[in-house]
């Protein structure tokens, strides 16, 4: 009898070990293969700059309150408070020791699209790789080349300060299983080239959904409410719905949206506020065509 019990316990433990092993295997960090970037050709640094502004890298990674050229020093930025704890955006300047100076393009692309760092560790999705996963390899190549031209900083950001169990990186593999993919956020039938460009900018580099889409209890985006806004995860107030169903922005024309992204003025001549100020200033660096594409996409998505 006792031996049967022992056997059952042992086999349960065995199943547990195998299960845990399978979990760790399935959820292990998965960087991109070197071969993917071997034959991409030379980088287009000018396009890299466009992608840099579309992505708004410096909004999180430049020092708080940086203006003008100081925005290009990606020394690590202001702390990002969330329900899971406080994230400290790291130094991503080309400094060899403190920044990304020693990273290869494949390592950079693995961070952007797979959320894996140069040492093969899972990165936290406060770095919005669950959006960047939609970016093209050539844009990543160009962005990486542009970032290499920026000033170096030797600043070292503090480590993230997170509550248990979020402080255990292996859990991120499970998170990625649930939320990391490169599929379109919305299916748009017969989308024009302009709408498709807008979709790429908004869903990929622009990572608009990271704030404008509500999150579930594990911090994953509720994709059914794509861009429908919700409570502000950083504190008081709400983030606006930017779909055609929004009571404010839904009434704006595509021209109004493009103008807002360029000048920071709403059609009622209210001005941009909060964390959208930095985003709008980045969008002002894009071409008129790209801002129009973003506007066209926002008019094409389902109303919420």
């Amino acid at each position: 009898m006792a031996s049967t019990l022992t056997k059952s316990v042992l086999s349960l433990i065995g199943i547990g070990i195998v299960g845990a092993g399978a979990f760790f295997w399935i959820t292990r960090p998965q960087p991109l293969p070197e071969s993917e970037f071997a034959n991409l050709g030379p980088a287009d640094v000018t396009n890299g700059e466009t992608i840099f502004w579309a992505g708004g890298c410096e909004s999180c990674h430049a020092a708080k309150g940086a203006e003008g050229d100081a925005k290009l020093v990606l020394s690590g930025g202001a702390p990002l408070p969330t329900p899971f704890g406080t994230f400290y955006p790291p130094n991503i300047s080309p400094d060899e020791k403190a920044g990304l100076g020693h990273w290869t393009l494949t390592q950079f692309a693995s961070a952007m699209k797979r959320g894996v760092d140069d040492e093969g560790r899972h990165l936290y999705p406060s770095f919005p790789y669950a959006s960047y996963s939609r970016m093209s390899d050539t844009d990543l190549r160009d962005l990486f080349a542009y970032m290499k031209t920026l000033p170096k900083s030797d600043n070292v950001a503090p480590p993230h300060d997170l509550a248990f169990p979020f402080n255990m990186r292996f859990t991120l593999g499970g998170w990625k299983l649930l939320y990391l993919n490169d599929k379109p956020r919305v299916e748009l039938a017969n989308a024009s080239p302009e709408v498709k460009r807008g979709q790429y900018l908004v869903e990929g580099p622009g990572h608009c959904g990271e704030c404008h889409t509500p999150r579930d209890i594990l911090g994953g985006l509720k994709v059914a409410d794509w861009l429908a806004g919700g409570p502000n995860p950083e504190g008081k107030g709400t983030i606006p719905d930017i779909t055609p169903g929004s009571k404010d922005i839904g009434r704006w024309s595509a021209g109004d949206i493009a103008n807002y992204l360029e000048t920071g003025f709403t059609p009622e001549f209210d001005s941009v506020g909060g964390s959208m100020v930095a985003v709008q200033q980045n969008m002002a660096h894009l071409s008129k065509e790209d801002r129009a594409a973003i506007a066209a996409y926002l008019k094409a998505i389902p109303a919420r």
Partner: peptide, 19 residues
């Protein structure tokens, strides 16, 4: 207008609640 708008958004960035 550009000069004025810059001051508007500088203040709104820090002091206006998200709405």
């Amino acid at each position: 207008l550009g000069e004025i708008g810059k001051v508007c958004s500088a203040c709104h960035q820090d002091f206006r609640l998200k709405k």
